[in-house]
Design a binder for these strands. Structure first.
Lengths: 191, 191
DNA sequence: TTTACTTCTTGATATAGGTCAAGCTATTTT
DNA sequence: AAAATAGCTTGACCTATATCAAGAAGTAAA
């Protein structure tokens, strides 16, 4: 059904699955609806799922000892999110995943993904190739974080992801870029 | 031979390869010796290889328009490095990879890795699992970059990787952590 | 349509940490 | 072992950006 179209297209960009493989894959997907402000992952609980967003927006953030939030991931349609460390190592999550809007997500359990990846070579390839691309992107974010000014980081993000920047609250963007909300406000007013 | 022991052990931590698969894998490895300060990857050229360090130390860094260096990866024995974006997308590298010591590295070409991963399910699994772990680590570095003070980042690194911190020049560590060398010097003298 | 949250803006102030400069100390190289 | 190069330290200064505070503007709820 149309609810799986997005994720199947996503897979299709990397590998080809047979019809029966697609069926097997779909069988491990659980569709979940979450309301705005609802938590999908919480510190203390293992992040059981890899989550794919069919519709809506989610952020993953870390709450430090001073009560400050630091956003690691901002995800909209066609993005994946999870507390990756918790998901892989089966340890309690350190991050929150919070719906920024009412959302529909597809959830796949760690064991199910691993089982399927062991059985279906193409699926393993898919996650490998996709994760390698995420990794390359992650290096770029790191470079940006350590080498650019707040203003440069802000405009870089806004130019690269205008739809996301317009869609999420500014304080979320601020905590993603490691900038104070006030500074973002000033950067915007300056232009 | 012993030169392959490290990488085979590395693989062994994730998956089991048959003897013939091991042989196939070894056949795509090229052993290269590089001298201190030699470049293994340079902007403008495609980063052809995934590189594994048998012995020595290497850093990957970005040179910005103001001539400042920003280190993305510091790698010693049993680590991989490459300009990942260039390697995956076959586009000219943006980073330098520079030997910090005389080093012995194992190089595997993109096409060879892809061909083998298509043929050998376990190898695909290996790279998938390993990259997923790298990814989880990468999020931690991001959090650290956007949420911690320079001093916290410095001590965090030194405690986590004391051997590396003692082995590489301080300006390299500084450019990895996004701190000025002077500040690192002051942080150290303060303790 | 008033009340109450939530988010954003603006101003005043403080400070972490960068930059510049100069000298010092190692470590290579000749 | 002298010369040269590379790396580290220290001091003085400066600026980008955080923090604090208070109000304005949106948005949702009652």
């Amino acid at each position: 059904m149309s609810e799986y179209k997005g994720i199947l297209d996503h897979i299709d960009r990397y590998v080809e699955l047979s019809d029966s493989e697609i069926e097997e894959f779909i069988s491990i997907l659980k569709t979940t609806r979450v309301k705005k402000r609802q938590f999908i992952v919480q510190p203390g609980f293992v992040s059981e799922y890899r989550n794919y967003i069919v519709e809506g927006a989610v952020r993953v953030f870390y709450l430090d000892d001073q009560g400050k939030e630091h956003t690691v991931i901002i995800a909209i349609e066609d993005y994946f999110f999870t507390d990756f460390y918790s998901y892989i190592h089966r340890t309690p999550a350190e991050y929150y995943a919070e719906a920024l809007e009412d959302s529909i997500i597809l959830q796949m359990k760690y064991e199910d993904v691993e089982k399927l990846c062991s059985r279906i070579h193409a699926l393993s390839q898919y996650f490998r190739l996709f994760t390698e691309r995420s990794m390359a992107y992650s290096y770029k974010r790191t470079i940006s974080n350590i080498s650019k000014t707040t203003e440069e980081r802000y405009w870089e993000y806004v130019n690269k992801y205008p739809e996301i920047a317009n869609r999420v609250p500014q304080y979320v963007l601020a905590s993603y870029l490691g900038i104070s909300p006030e500074s973002i406000s000033r950067i915007r007013s300056r232009s």
